[in-house]
Amino acid sequence: MSTVTLPRWHWGDPESPRRALLVHGLGSSAQTTWRISEGLADAGWSATAVDLRGHGAAPRASRYRIEDIAGDLLGTRPEGDGPWQLVVGHSIGAAAAAQAAGTESAWSERLVLLDPALQLDEPARQSVLAGQLANHDGATVASIAEQFPHWHPLDIEFRVWAVQAASRFALERMVLDNDDWNVTAFVPHIAAPTLVIAADPDHGAMFAGEHAAAVLATNPLLEAVVVAGAGHSVHRDAPEATLRHLLDWLRASETP
């Protein structure tokens, strides 16, 4: 497994001792994290977002297994080395972050997973694949705005740009290479306090029901909150609520 160097985008004071890494989901890019990145920067954090392999300006590669993405993430370190004080991941980015944190405990001090895609069965994988390829081939500002009229205009703009900027091969292989899509075995080994911000089960949540309960039961460091009314992209469907949950949890975890 060869790793690739991931391009970085940055928000906030680069000298801040509180350094966060943000990891986007399938068909997205570093720029699609802007609401969370900006919110963390406003709260005094140095926020760095990366383009995953095959996405945005990142190198293209021949393999797109979650373990490859996790390896790329483990290769990222803040300026001056040391751990990330916080890693925030969405969807497959959250799955890769969970695998990375479960592999190397010194990589991150805290973890936030936005509706993580930790385990997908075959019908779910095929649905994800069809949606990603359809967006890559035909998404427009008008079509995304019609589908998500409540999204911020920048979220719509970045969604269209990101899915078109991603390699079509990468979008396919991130699903097809992961025919055994399941990183739950890494969750018990996560040594960092972890918050799962899950989507509403009535709006297409990937972290819900018996699956969510089983995952939470494997590690006492995990806790979860559901964002009512939000779909899988919780940070775009309900950015204020998502950021509030994140910042409240961070403040509580920093309280002596």
Rank of each mutant, 00 (worst) to 15 (best):
M1D: 07
T5Y: 05
T5I: 10
L6Y: 00
P7G: 13
W9Q: 14
G12W: 04
P14W: 06
E15Q: 11
S16R: 03
P17N: 06
P17L: 07
P17T: 04
R18Q: 13
L22K: 01
V23T: 01
V23I: 14
G25Q: 05
L26G: 12
S28N: 12
A30E: 05
T32S: 11
T32Q: 07
T33Q: 11
R35M: 11
I36C: 06
E38H: 15
L40V: 01
D42M: 13
S46V: 02
D51S: 07
R53I: 12
G54D: 05
A57D: 15
P59E: 08
A61S: 14
R63N: 12
R65Q: 14
A70Q: 01
L73C: 05
G75Q: 01
G80C: 00
L86C: 08
V87M: 04
V88C: 02
S91R: 01
I92R: 02
A97K: 01
A98R: 03
A101Q: 01
A101N: 00
E109I: 04
R110N: 03
V112M: 09
D115M: 04
D115I: 07
D115A: 03
D115N: 10
A117L: 14
A117M: 14
A117S: 15
Q119K: 13
Q119R: 14
L120M: 12
D121M: 03
D121T: 03
Q126C: 09
V128G: 10
L129Q: 11
G131I: 05
L133F: 06
L133N: 08
L133R: 10
G138L: 02
T140W: 10
A142Q: 14
A142R: 13
S143A: 11
F148S: 13
H150D: 11
H152Y: 08
I156F: 11
A165D: 09
S167I: 04
S167P: 07
A170T: 04
L171S: 06
L171I: 08
M174S: 10
L176F: 05
L176H: 07
D179A: 11
D179W: 09
D179H: 11
N182P: 06
A185I: 08
A185T: 13
F186T: 08
V187H: 02
P188W: 09
A191Y: 00
A192N: 09
L195R: 03
A198N: 09
D200M: 02
D200P: 02
P201T: 06
M206S: 13
M206T: 13
M206I: 11
F207R: 00
A208K: 13
E210V: 12
H211G: 04
A212T: 02
A212M: 02
A213W: 07
L216W: 07
L216G: 09
T218E: 12
L221M: 13
L221Q: 14
A224C: 15
V225P: 09
V226I: 15
V227N: 01
A228S: 13
G231R: 05
H232G: 01
S233P: 12
H235N: 15
A238Y: 15
T242P: 06
H245E: 15
L246A: 01
L247K: 09
W249I: 10
R251A: 15
E254W: 05
T255E: 14
